[in-house]
């Protein structure tokens, strides 16, 4: 049953696009309300659908990419668009195959910049073993839009035997993170040269397919997700809702880069809400957790860690602090703003 929802806002604000609750409600109560069908699952990274009679399901995912600035240490919007799309297929258990690309380019963008972006995109495609098989470009009137937006759709194939899903999560399961949290969000923030800040931090943007492939045949593997917009706290919320229980994260266990910690302190941000673009959060039965950790490390993720667990209790995300206290990690309300307090 679709229930009517009345939006508290009259206008779209940036909060409707930040991965938090406002955006979820916009998608659930507007997009999904109208576009609902047997295959559309707004919570999934990729859609599985029947297509042929062979062993594989066709997997489709799509993502739009906007970054300011277009280029940042560790990547640019071109490579990011490929990695982001490939990652959504990968965490769904699929092997990425084909991509489509839409480019919305702002009037006035330097061609040399575009050249670099598309080149990085091509490199990322080669590295991920995918091909862009359809594309389109539109030029936009000059705005404050930031130069270029990409929309990438990915098509992959997944063995029908694979049985992952957020609804497979159980109380007692362990939560793993394949590397440090928030590097991408923080690196982009630093690249903006806003607030007079700078640093040497690099985005973690990369394909996670090697990691997901390594985990795929682990019997206790329940669910994987790439913690992008909204960071690990947002994914933890999605898990808590799905299991209607408590997700407990352990502050001292979560790998966080020193520079990310520092920037978060300076601006009053919370690093758990900062985006990653090359990490996997995986939920694994407790008995397989150590094996999962070993496999992640074996796939090159030296900082991978078991960062928490799923518990009975109220639907919430709790952070156990270093001092043994507890703190609620609220659902992301809005884009972070620099604070003085």
């Amino acid at each position: 049953m679709i229930t009517e929802h009345s939006f508290s806002d009259t206008y779209i604000t940036l909060a409707h696009g930040n991965g938090g609750r406002f955006m979820r409600e916009l998608i659930e109560h507007l997009f999904a309300k109208y576009l609902d069908n047997a295959w559309l699952d707004t919570r999934a990274d990729a859609a599985a659908m029947p297509f042929d009679e062979s062993d594989f399901e066709l997997m489709i995912t799509t993502d739009g990419f906007t970054v300011d600035p277009l280029e940042f240490p560790g990547g640019n919007i071109g490579s990011l668009a490929i990695h982001g799309t490939v990652n959504d297929l990968a965490v769904a258990g699929a092997t990425p195959r084909y991509l489509s690309l839409n480019a919305f380019i702002e009037e006035g963008l330097e061609i040399a910049v575009l050249d670099r972006l598309i080149r990085s995109m091509a490199e990322a495609c080669r590295e991920c073993g995918v091909d862009i098989v359809a594309g389109d470009t539109k030029v936009l009137r000059r705005g404050q839009g930031g130069g270029v937006y990409f929309a990438v759709t990915g098509v992959g194939q997944r063995n029908r035997s694979i049985n992952l899903g957020i609804d497979k999560i159980q109380t007692g399961d362990c939560i793993l993170l394949s590397g440090t949290a928030g590097d991408h969000g923080c690196a982009v923030l630093l690249a903006r040269e806003q607030f007079g800040l700078s640093g040497t931090l690099k985005s973690d943007a990369a394909s996670v397919f090697p990691v997901t492939r390594a985990l795929l045949d682990l019997p206790g593997l329940r669910f994987m997700r790439d913690p992008t917009r909204g960071g690990i706290a947002t994914v933890a919320h999605e898990m808590a809702s799905a299991v209607a229980g408590t997700v407990k994260l352990v502050e001292t266990a979560i790998p966080i880069n020193e520079q990310v910690k520092t920037v978060a302190e300076i601006l009053g941000y919370d690093p758990y809400y900062l985006a990653c673009e090359g990490r996997v959060m995986a939920v694994v039965g407790a008995g397989d957790a150590e094996e999962a950790l070993k496999r992640m490390r074996g796939a090159g993720c030296s900082e991978a860690a078991i960062i928490g667990e799923v518990q009975d209790g109220r639907t919430q995300v709790i952070l156990e602090t270093a001092l043994g206290g507890e703190r609620i990690l609220e659902e992301l309300e809005d884009d972070p703003l620099p604070r003085i307090c």
Binding site: F195, G199, E258, T262, I266, I340
Partner: peptide, 27 residues
């Protein structure tokens, strides 16, 4: 209120300085 953090001075130019802590610099 009054969020403040300690940083180390890396360079000085008149009344402006670049300070750093743990790899992060700020003017």
């Amino acid at each position: 209120m009054c969020l403040a953090i300690p940083m180390q001075i890396a360079s000085i130019n008149g009344s402006r300085a670049v300070c750093s802590i743990k790899g992060i610099e700020r003017e």
